[in-house]
């Protein structure tokens, strides 16, 4: 009798345990299924995202006959790198010149822009002067206005300055970015005011304080700004096309677009893709090495270039 009781209670116990195990097992299975589904979805999306890059690279190493097959090969039969050589020799493209122009404009405008941004942000973040808040609000308000509105008048202005077809026209009008000033000001304000007072007691001038304390502390933001500004020069298209579209000053995006705008004739797509790959390569290199700064800067901006 006693055995029986304990036996049945034991079997009840095991049944419950078994049911519990079942529940937790189904939970586990659901969990695994969900994870698999997540990876599947993300994997497919990632492939879609990556496919244009893959296609660009694959197409660029194909010969024209292979590219023109009615069933394109996913992996090229033979790797033909002569497109990359040809890209640099192409008379329409002048890639070397384009690189040099863009790099020059990018470096100079970034350097000058950084100086202006740092000084302005410092004034807004650390100094007291009449009308500071009003001025800053006015600056922020201009960010609402689409840039095209400025372009109409700026085109006339640079024309009357006689800046057409110079590097100046590519650099000067975009030196001040209200957004970068805003970004850096926020960053500067996080530095406790006591550091500024301490530096004053130690006999530091404003500029030395900026150089020795503020800039090192705001370095990540400054790097973000530098990268975004450089990318901006690299990707700018419309303004350069309007004001400096001659061989001596043309920037890279422009050169790329115009070189392959042949009429409805047959475009040498592999060559074009090689050019696109070459133009994209520096951006990828920057991305690979400085991803952290780009993502940090972008997550606070949303402004491309």
């Amino acid at each position: 009798m006693k055995d029986n009781v304990t036996g049945s209670s034991a079997s009840v116990k095991t049944m419950r345990e078994r049911d519990m195990q079942k529940v937790s097992a189904t939970q586990k299975i659901v969990k695994i299924c969900v994870q698999v589904a997540l990876y599947l979805f993300l994997g497919v999306m990632a492939l879609i995202i990556l496919f244009p890059f893959y296609w660009m690279l694959v197409s660029s190493v194909k010969t024209m006959p292979e590219y023109s097959q009615s069933i394109p090969s996913i992996i090229p039969h033979e790797w033909d790198f002569h497109n990359y050589v040809e890209v640099f020799q192409n008379e329409d493209l002048l890639l070397g010149q384009l690189f040099a122009n863009t790099l020059f404009v990018g470096v100079v405008s970034t350097a000058l822009s950084l100086v202006i941004t740092v000084l302005s942000a410092f004034a807004f973040a650390r100094l007291e002067f009449k009308g500071k808040n009003l001025l800053f609000a006015a600056l922020l308000a201009t960010m609402m206005i689409p840039g095209e509105l400025f372009t109409i008048t700026n085109f006339q202005t640079v024309h009357s300055f006689g800046w057409m077809h110079t590097f100046t026209v590519l650099i000067v009008p975009f030196l001040v970015s209200v957004f970068y000033i805003y970004l850096l000001k926020q960053n500067f304000q996080q530095v406790p005011n006591e550091l500024y007072l301490a530096a004053k007691v130690d006999g530091t001038t404003d500029l030395k304080y900026l150089w020795k304390v503020m800039i090192p502390l705001a370095l990540p933001t400054l790097i973000s700004i530098t990268i975004l500004k450089m990318m901006g020069s690299w990707n700018s298209y419309m303004w350069p096309r309007l004001v400096a579209n001659d061989d001596a000053h043309r920037l890279i995006t422009n050169g790329l677009r115009t070189a392959f705008t042949s009429a409805d004739g047959v475009t040498d797509v592999p060559l074009q893709m090689a050019a696109v790959a070459v133009v994209s390569a520096p951006l990828f290199l920057v991305f690979v090495f400085l991803r952290k700064y780009i993502m940090k800067g972008v997550s606070r901006s949303g402004i491309k270039g």
Partner: peptide
């Protein structure tokens, strides 16, 4: 006189050490 010309040393409440 400005602070640096007074010959003073000042210790701030939050120390204000240069973090970098």
């Amino acid at each position: 006189l400005t602070p640096e010309n007074r010959g003073i040393g000042l210790v701030f409440q939050n120390y204000a050490l240069y973090p970098h």
